[in-house]
């Protein structure tokens, strides 16, 4: 599509769905959901070969939300892409709901990996990419990690595997919003410099503004052109992006807005005037 205005509109709609979902559930993770909206919008509405109709196509692209707590963003994107009915969004985290607190591959159409226990999704993504190499499939695999998530040691086992097997069909994205539950990543357990560590592990990398569509396009183009090595996009993002009082505030990692906060958030998003 590569139509920035359209993607911006979709991104704003996804943000509104995320806030609405979490408000109605009175539970969920808004901060890290809002920071990945441009990445998911580009993946589902431009980059990936996927649709509800081609789920059984062995050549469809795959996406793994390794930072599974940002499920509301994934659900909003999948819903808009037509994987399930909009009513499902409003049952998030409820008893009997299709949309679980963290992505459930078995129960939710469009979800490629069950994630939530941090550090595991990236391994599954590497497995999918390796399977394509073994069976000469041509699909691509996209995995989205949090920067805080990179504190999990098994992430580095997976990255080592990706480089060792030259998984150039794998594109890892790091949502580097700089915050985790207990505060700034740099203070809790510093993982920086992320790009240099990824390079040392054998990745081709690019650092971008994770909210800027042209930069995201360029990064995905580079990823597809890279041969013989896996590619990583370090996306510098703003946690809580789009809702002024949630931006850059770790306390919005895993708490739901009250009615007043919800109304303010929705008003800001409708206007699209919140700036970081």
């Amino acid at each position: 599509m590569r139509d920035v205005a359209t993607l911006q509109r979709i991104a704003r709609e996804l943000r509104m769905d995320i806030v609405e979902m979490i408000y109605r559930a009175a539970s969920g993770h808004p901060g890290g959901s809002l920071s990945i909206v441009e990445l998911l919008t580009t993946l589902y509405f431009d980059e990936m070969k996927q649709s509800p109709e081609n789920r059984d196509d062995p050549e469809r692209d795959r996406f793994v939300l390794s930072k599974g707590h940002s499920a509301p963003a994934l659900y909003a994107a999948l819903c808009k892409a037509g994987y399930f009915k909009r009513e499902e969004l409003w049952c998030l985290r409820q008893i009997g709901a299709m949309l679980q607190g963290h992505p459930d591959r078995k129960g939710t159409p469009g979800v490629d990996a069950s994630t939530g226990s941090l550090g595991l999704g990236i391994s599954a993504a590497c497995g999918m990419a390796k399977a394509a190499k073994i069976y000469q499939n041509h699909y691509r695999v996209y995995a989205l990690l949090g920067d805080g998530e990179m504190e999990e040691g098994s992430v580095w086992e997976a990255l080592m595997f990706a480089a060792h097997y030259g998984l150039d069909n794998l594109c890892v994205m790091v949502d580097a919003n700089g915050l985790q539950i207990d505060g700034p990543v740099r203070k809790v357990m510093n993982v920086e410099p992320i790009d240099k560590k990824l390079q040392a592990f054998g990745f081709e990398t690019i650092c971008i503004d994770g909210h800027d569509f042209p930069s995201i396009f360029k990064a995905f183009d580079l990823a597809r052109q890279t041969k013989g090595a896996p590619f990583a996009i370090v996306a510098r993002t703003v946690k809580g992006k789009g809702v002024s009082f949630m931006e850059n505030d770790a306390s919005w990692h895993g708490s739901a807005p009250n009615t007043q906060q919800y109304e303010q958030a929705m008003a800001e998003l409708r206007k699209g005037d919140a700036q970081s």
């Binding site: 990996a113 595991l120 599954a124 590497c126 497995g127 399977a131 098994s154 997976a158």
Partner: peptide
């Protein structure tokens, strides 16, 4: 085990 999960999912 994660690699196993990813391959099995295909």
């Amino acid at each position: 085990m994660g690699i196993a999960a990813g391959i099995a999912s295909t």
